[in-house]
Design a binder for these strands. Structure first.
Lengths: 150, 150
DNA sequence: CTCAGTGCAAAGGATTTGCATGCCG
DNA sequence: CGGCATGCAAATCCTTTGCACTGAG
């Protein structure tokens, strides 16, 4: 889904984000972003390292932190002990996660626009009541994926 | 909000859940549940230990694990590195979380029933498409809480 | 009495950091 | 050239576990 001709575009945007923060878009960071573009959902460090063996663990951690600060990447935490990373929403599209309780895998999905809008309105109504200023929302479904229920 | 006369009721339900699993409801576990009833949102281990200094760390971890297995407690993970725990939804009510990006605190909130129902329907529609079997959903708002924006 | 539960301290595992080296700008 | 980024290995920090002890039934 993410392997379309917008990839080059994403690269440019990441480059821009880094430049604004006075950070370099080095080859290691490029390879990291490339791996993240690959996944159908957020990836764990292990998955990233497996996907590109040339990436050293510590650099991956460091660069993911920087890419997150810069706003190019989002860190996700599920119930298991592994943090997961994905490209930031403004580089892809707003989406949510299907988290399989059995295999632990995380995949993306979207809500139809009407439902998403309605949800957004309801959320703002609720947040306003307590003076909370919403930045974004996060919606995950926990359950069993198709392969695990088969 | 949770400090009402349903507290005794919750205690009974937790006791029942433990009994079903052939687990004892010991004083340490009682104190732990008592602390969880205190919070306006999920608590970190540190918060729990601070709330009741007589609770040893390792027992808290162990008992939270057991209470989670039994279905009395839910483990939450936010973006920071601390796991948080709260009483299971069927002991309280379905609710969501306001996560402050500045101070890291988590508080509960609810959506109005109409919005919640609409959301649920939309979620099932989306999940059905990919053969995902929903157990529950998790909805968090990320942003700035009233005290931090002041 | 017996066995699950407890508490201490030491181990485990994901993540972070120090430091010498290499490379981008 | 100068400083940021890198990579290795050692350190850190939340969490888990081993083991001897205690208390509930």
């Amino acid at each position: 889904m993410r392997t379309t001709d917008v990839d080059a575009d994403i690269d440019d945007q990441v480059a821009a984000l880094l430049r604004q923060a006075e950070q370099r878009y080095t080859s290691g960071r490029r390879r990291l972003v490339a791996v993240l573009q690959t996944g159908d959902g957020p990836l764990t460090i292990t998955q990233i390292l497996d996907a590109d063996r040339s990436l050293p663990q510590s650099s991956v951690y460091r660069n993911l932190t920087i890419l997150e600060e810069v706003g190019a990447v989002t860190r996700i935490v599920t119930r298991d002990d592994f943090a997961r990373y994905e490209l930031a929403e403004h580089l892809t599209e707003h989406h949510h996660h299907l988290i399989c309780s059995t295999c632990g895998d995380v995949t993306d999905f979207s809500l139809d626009p009407r439902a998403e809008t309605g949800l957004d309105r309801a959320l703002h109504r609720a947040a306003d009541e307590v003076g909370f200023d919403i930045d974004t929302h996060r919606l995950d479904l926990l359950g069993t994926c198709a392969s695990c229920s088969g």
